[in-house]
């Protein structure tokens, strides 16, 4: 069981007997009143997104899903292929099941794949990943204190915002949950 205070983006819960993933949630509370959590949840089977409100402290079941670690092999015609390194069994996910995940997927990467009744239905990434910048405007030295950013293109084709001092060719650490730049990771 989860309580509303356990909620975070990506948490998988069971609502009306179906597995859902929390896409977004909003905590509201008048200063001296009852708190509520309103969440946007995505049905992991149908892909439909619905809006629900729970009283804070309310409990919900964990979704009856199984998590396994698979290796990403390749993408072909909008289908993403993964392999279980223990059984060598291969599975595929559709493009819309991957959603924004293509931004972080590189060959041989290990990711979490969620199974429901034996079929893969969802993907989760390590919280942080390191990717190379293939294009951005040249860096400005010493500018580490302001919030100004510039766009940078990654080896996967994704575009992220980075601080001005970062250079093309740098490897950077990214928070896959938010898509935010964390730090340079040149080694």
């Amino acid at each position: 069981m989860y309580e509303t205070s356990d909620f975070k983006k990506g948490l998988r819960i069971e609502i009306d007997g179906q597995p859902y993933k929390i896409v977004d949630f909003q905590f509201v509370k008048p200063g001296k009143g009852n708190a509520f959590t309103r969440c946007k949840i995505k049905n992991l089977i149908t892909g439909n997104t619905i809006d629900r409100t729970l009283k804070s402290g309310e409990k919900v079941e964990k979704a009856a899903v199984e998590d396994r670690t698979l290796q990403f092999l390749y993408e072909e015609n909008g289908k993403f292929h993964f392999m279980d390194n223990q059984s060598y069994e291969q599975y595929e996910l559709e493009k819309d099941q991957i959603a924004d995940g293509w931004k972080w997927l590189v060959e041989n990467m290990e990711v979490g794949i969620c199974f429901y009744n034996g079929a893969p239905i969802d993907i989760t990434f390590p919280n942080f990943t390191i990717l190379e910048i293939t294009y951005c405007e040249p860096g400005i030295k010493g500018d580490t204190a302001t919030n100004t950013t510039k766009p940078a293109t990654l080896s996967t084709g994704a575009e992220v915002q980075v601080p001005l001092f970062v250079n093309q060719g740098d490897k950077i650490k990214i928070d896959t949950r938010t898509g935010d730049y964390v730090e340079r990771a040149n080694k």
């Binding site: 509201v28 509370k29 008048p30 009143g33 009852n34 509520f36 309103r38 619905i50 809006d51 629900r52 409100t53 729970l54 009283k55 309310e58």
Partner: peptide, 21 residues
């Protein structure tokens, strides 16, 4: 179109809910 909690809601809980949203 505002989703409401499924559980028991007393008047005070309703008040806070309506006020917040």
């Amino acid at each position: 179109g505002l989703p409401t909690p499924a559980g028991e809601m007393d008047r005070r809980a309703w008040t806070d809910f309506l006020f917040s949203f």
